[in-house]
């Protein structure tokens, strides 16, 4: 745990130097990467540790985005709106978890997928509060310059990613994380062994919701305009999963490595094949699942292991 923490400290410190480049392009990319990292690490709580194939990331993200935006519309200061959005996502995850985590396998996967669809329809129909399909504008934070603004949101995402990572590290090295591993391996055996499976699963689901909720709210402030199909996009859920798969499920740095690798690929595709970028994204997913289902970290381990005699 200490080793992981020190590596992470160095890693985050290095990333914190990025604004020195002074280029808006790299700032945008860095902020997006950290946001993706938060989504992937969050998914890891429920998907990696507990082994429940959740597609609820998009629901938490959209909920957080709209909660933050609506709160600011009613005059709540930005910071409080973000924290409030996280808390709302936390409570929502708890209630949703109690209901949905009784399902397993495909049933859980699809039910969690559907949540974002339902929220999107609700947001669409609550025109008075959310602007409906017209979307919602957010106040632009008063900053000295566009650059200062970009820097500000970069550091906020960095902080959020660091907090999420810390939560993940603590969880993985605690009774909660150990219990989740038991559940992932064999849920009924875990139950027999005294693991309060419902409580553990719901806790994992709450952890997988809260930081995504904050990320959604920060994202909304960052881009200062949101609309339902944008923030409730099912691709957020799928990307989170793909990033964890890419980085290797169950490892501490997997989600972050996966987020960085995924974003690089996505950016490459966006820049070169705008017309077919979803298709190429699909192809990447297919190749990843078929040829690298255990992720990049396992690849490096496999390569590394050849050198050592074990």
């Amino acid at each position: 745990m200490k080793r992981d923490a020190s590596i992470a400290l160095v890693l985050f410190a290095l990333v914190a130097l990025l604004p020195l480049s002074g280029e808006a392009y790299w700032m945008r990319l860095g902020t997006t990467m950290l946001m993706y990292g938060v989504l992937a690490m969050s998914w890891n709580f429920i998907g990696g540790m507990a082994g429940y194939p959740s597609f609820a990331v998009a629901a938490f993200f959209g909920l957080g985005a709209y909660a933050g935006a609506v709160a600011q519309k009613f005059g709540v200061p930005m910071g409080f709106a973000w924290v409030g959005a996280g808390l709302l996502a936390l409570v929502f995850a708890a209630l949703l978890g109690v209901a949905l985590l009784r399902l397993r396998g495909h049933y859980f996967a699809i039910a969690s997928l559907v949540v974002a669809e339902v929220l999107r329809e609700l947001v669409n129909s609550m025109t008075g509060l959310t602007g409906g399909g017209m979307g919602l504008n957010l106040p632009i934070p008063a900053m000295a310059s566009v650059d200062a603004q970009a820097r500000f949101f970069f550091y906020v995402m960095l902080l959020l990613a660091a907090v999420t990572f810390t939560a993940m590290l603590i969880t993985a090295n605690s009774k909660l994380g150990f219990g989740l591993r038991c559940i992932q391996q064999n849920e009924s055996a875990a139950d027999m062994l005294g693991v309060d499976t419902t409580f553990y699963k719901v806790s994992a689901f709450m952890l997988s919701g809260v930081f995504v909720g904050v990320a959604g709210a920060v994202y909304a402030s960052w881009v200062y305009y949101i609309e339902p199909p944008d923030v409730f996009d099912v691709l957020y859920s799928v990307k989170a999963i793909v990033m964890v798969l890419l980085g290797g499920a169950g490892s501490m740095f997997g989600p972050l490595v996966g987020a960085a690798a995924f974003l690089s690929l996505e950016e490459l595709v966006w820049r070169n094949y705008l017309e077919v970028h979803t298709g190429v994204l699909g192809l990447m997913i297919v190749l990843l699942v078929l040829f690298l289902p255990k992720g990049l970290i396992s690849l490096s381990q496999r390569l590394g292991r050849r050198g050592k005699l074990r």
Partner: peptide, 14 residues
């Protein structure tokens, strides 16, 4: 029904 992906010790520690 052991937890297959854990060590013997971890199984008992759980």
């Amino acid at each position: 029904q052991p937890f297959p992906g854990m060590t013997v010790l971890e199984n008992v520690a759980a």
